[in-house]
Amino acid sequence: MPHMDRRIRVLIAKPGLDGHDRGAKVVARALRDAGMEVIYTGLRQTPEMIVSAAIQEDVDAIGLSILSGAHMHYFREVKRLLEAQGAEDILLFGGGIIPDEDVPRLKELGVAAVFGPGTSTQEIVDFLRRAVPERWRAQGLA
């Protein structure tokens, strides 16, 4: 199975003005420890910057971390730009302080998974190990 050799590449991004980066960094490090290639954007990224970094770095997934309440806006924008650039195959997921009510709305937008406070990093690792190769198979890459 060729895809077994391929390492999952993930962009962890902090969109907008929110500076709460503890979660993003812990997740980035956990994914790296799990053998993935992780690019962390640093703070204060616009949706444009995030999507352009994702395409340039040829990542399989983008994880957005938002604790400011502005999640609907940023997920919508990132999704829109991914589609505009023909990069909708990049898996979009995220986490932060996101009320349950908003999770179905995010899923409708095409966000693959939302991880709230208290999620173990292993859960996120497992999710990516499952979802990313699925995409590879769907795209005939594997």
């Binding site: 907008g16 003005l17 929110d18 616009t46 400011s68 309440g69 502005a70 609907m72 806006h73 940023y74």
Partner: peptide, 16 residues
């Protein structure tokens, strides 16, 4: 330090 109508404020006004 951005006004509420600055482009970077979009989606964040009054949120937290």
């Amino acid at each position: 330090g951005y006004d509420s109508d600055h482009p970077l404020s979009k989606g964040e006004v009054g949120k937290c």
